[in-house]
Design a protein around this nucleic acid. Structure first.
Length: 612
DNA sequence: GGAGAAT
DNA sequence: ATTCTCCAACGCTAG
DNA sequence: CTAGCG
């Protein structure tokens, strides 16, 4: 089956005969599911099923519940979600190119993708393609309602099949897409039938073009392409090749300029020293090249020196309109030469990995309005000048900020909230969402003690079949997490567990670990702080910076990284983004891991044990 | 960083 | 006009 | 007992 194609448009049609959806950037794919295993076929009929084992696994798990609806066929997009309105194409592309079984398996764990379903072509063996879109959508949402498939896009649920959301109001959806820096929007006529392999005006795509400025660098007469470059570390770096968008006259003039003034690099290529700047429209940057570049206009008002990496990044990641940025050039981490705009760019990149942990939690921030070092203060209450996209929750008289959206994160960034502290529970429950052990050595010198304690804990948790996670605290210690199923355990119960584990470790290695609360009585031992895991207490959020001069980040680690030689100083703001790009996010399975932890049995044993 | 109060 | 002050809370200690 | 400190 060929997927139905989209027609490009500059504007979206309005009126109630249309619905609107996010355009996700990934691989267009048709998912056929007849027996226990589905097959996923790309647009050019390539079977990509085995490139995405996380989808296969998910289908295997849910097969018993889905069986009554098979055979079914869904049209959708294989994506890596960064938020509900944007996906990351480069990751899907790289997944699509990974072939060896072992690498595929590894990639599926580190960069789990999602299949976003937006159309249902067959259910229980019955063809739906001759029904109008709106009817097919009803069947689709019915399917997701009656099964455990999540019926809303949730970017922080990895490796699943999700159902796209349809919107009646294109204008407000477009706003959200702009805010989240998405690829674009799709408009579909409610009455449209599914016309396989055809491009008709019932399905329209409207792209969210972003404009970037480059230095026109080379011209190749063989294919009429120009290249554009920007300065990165003082080196001219090519970031695009373009030819579309120039008028004939512009093309002739520019080409002639290269031929007469340029330096000839080969039989067909000329190069110009940096002089001419141009605006290029694109839909993204894949790490090496702009995607869908299109010449827009010359920028004779700019000098080439202004086309450098950071400006390029800023143009690719514009701040949402509703978040005004003040003093972008204020130095925040002077030792690292990091400005406020660098911090905001960090937040932009880290948001997909950090926001899931801030979701529905009463937030405490530490603000450094003049950078670090510098005067700072804790803030719990929302200031009354906060914009209305900042959600709040009143708890015991305090109006906490709840950072549930990207704009709020940026706004907090602009407020120079550098440290994000969160409780162990969400605002909708009295039960802890996870257990955290704080391994706090007396000083940096004793960090190996934290490594040792963490590994001992990990061994215990493995034995108990409890999945655990580990991160640096961003100061001098480590923190070990056990995510819990929702609403299952009380703080009293988790206390029994945390106290037992800590006591056990101290009994085992009493010359290295201690439960002593008073600092002066701890000596050089590692303090196992189980008191810190309690209602009303908070802990630094994953990927939050710490307000120190070195720009430390509370960094999630893979357990394999926790071994002799692990250096907590390595995890600083400038290194984290590259780290996630290459090895992924060690916490990406955190929330799904929580749901089936066998802590109940462990607690029962412990309670019996303690009675005697 | 931003508001309101104090100087 | 400019400067100052506030923005958590909990355990501890000195007075 | 409380203001101040971290």
């Amino acid at each position: 089956m060929q997927p139905m194609l989209l027609t490009s448009a500059d504007e979206w049609p309005r009126g109630n005969e249309w619905i609107y959806e996010v355009k996700y950037d990934g691989y267009r794919a048709i998912l056929h599911w007849e027996n226990d295993l589905p097959t996923i076929i790309s647009r050019n009929q390539r079977d990509i099923t085995f490139l995405f084992p996380e989808i296969i696994d998910f289908c295997k798990r849910t097969y018993p519940l889905l069986a009554p609806f098979l055979p079914l066929t869904m049209d959708g997009e294989m994506v890596f979600l960064e938020n509900n309105f944007r996906s990351n194409f480069s990751i899907v592309q790289s997944r699509g190119k990974t072939k060896s079984k072992q690498k595929v398996e590894e990639a599926s764990k580190k960069f789990p993708c999602q299949f976003i379903a937006f159309d249902l072509l067959k259910i229980q063996g019955t063809d739906l393609v001759t029904l109008p879109l709106i009817e097919r959508k009803k069947h689709l949402s019915q399917l997701f309602k009656e099964t455990p498939l999540p019926n809303k896009i949730k970017f922080f649920q990895r490796g699943q099949i999700q159902c796209i959301e349809s919107y009646e109001d294109g204008d407000s959806l477009w706003k959200m897409i702009k805010t989240h820096n998405g690829e674009g929007m799709i408009a579909k006529r409610k009455t449209s039938l599914y016309t396989a392999g055809k491009r008709i005006d019932d399905w329209l795509k409207i792209k969210n073009w972003r404009m970037v400025t480059v230095i026109v660098h080379t011209f190749n007469k063989e294919n009429d392409y120009f290249t554009g470059a920007v300065y990165k570390d003082n080196q001219l770096t090519e970031v695009t090749a373009f030819k579309h968008g120039l008028t004939d006259e512009q093309f002739q003039t520019l080409a002639a300029f290269f031929r007469t003034k340029g330096e000839k690099l080969s039989s067909s290529v000329w190069m110009l020293p940096p002089s001419i700047c141009a605006d290029i429209a694109c839909i993204d940057f894949d790490g090496k090249k702009l995607r869908e570049p299109r010449f827009h206009s010359f920028r004779f008002d700019l000098s080439p020196e202004e086309c450098y990496w950071k400006n390029f990044q800023k143009q690719l990641h514009p701040m949402p309109e509703e978040v005004p940025v003040t003093h972008p050039e204020k130095p925040i981490w002077p030792k690292l030469n990091l400005l406020k705009e660098d911090y905001l760019l960090y937040l932009e990149y880290i948001a997909p990995y950090m926001l899931p942990f801030l979701q529905n939690r009463a937030l405490t921030t530490i603000r450094y309005p003049h950078g670090v070092p510098g005067e700072h203060f804790y803030q719990k209450n929302v200031p009354d000048y906060a914009p209305n996209y900042v959600q709040t929750k009143q708890i015991e008289g305090i109006h906490y900020i709840v950072c549930n959206n990207l704009s709020t994160l940026f706004w907090l960034g602009n407020q120079l909230a550098l440290e994000f502290h969160i409780p162990f529970q969400t605002i909708d429950t009295a039960h802890p969402t996870e257990i955290v052990f704080d391994l706090d050595p007396p000083s940096q010198k004793e960090f190996p003690l934290a490594i040792e304690a963490a590994l001992k804990m990990k061994a215990i948790f493995d034995q108990l079949q409890l999945q655990s996670f580990v991160k640096t605290s961003g100061n001098k210690g480590l923190q070990v997490y056990i995510p819990l199923p929702k609403n299952q355990f009380t703080y009293d119960e988790t206390r029994i567990f945390t106290e037992f584990i800590c006591q056990f470790l101290v009994n085992q290695v009493s010359h290295k670990f201690t439960l002593e609360r008073l600092k002066k009585n701890r000596g050089n031992k590692l303090y196992l702080d189980y008191v810190q895991h309690a209602e009303g207490k908070t802990i630094i959020a994953p990927y939050s910076p710490r307000g120190n001069e070195w720009g430390s980040i509370a960094t999630p680690l893979y357990w394999e990284e926790v071994k002799e030689g692990l250096n907590p100083n390595h995890f600083t703001l400038p290194t984290i983004i590259e780290r996630i790009k290459t090895i992924g996010d060690p916490f990406n399975h955190f929330f799904e891991a929580g749901e089936n932890q066998p802590l109940k049995a462990v607690l029962k044993e412990l309670k019996n044990l303690l009675k005697k």
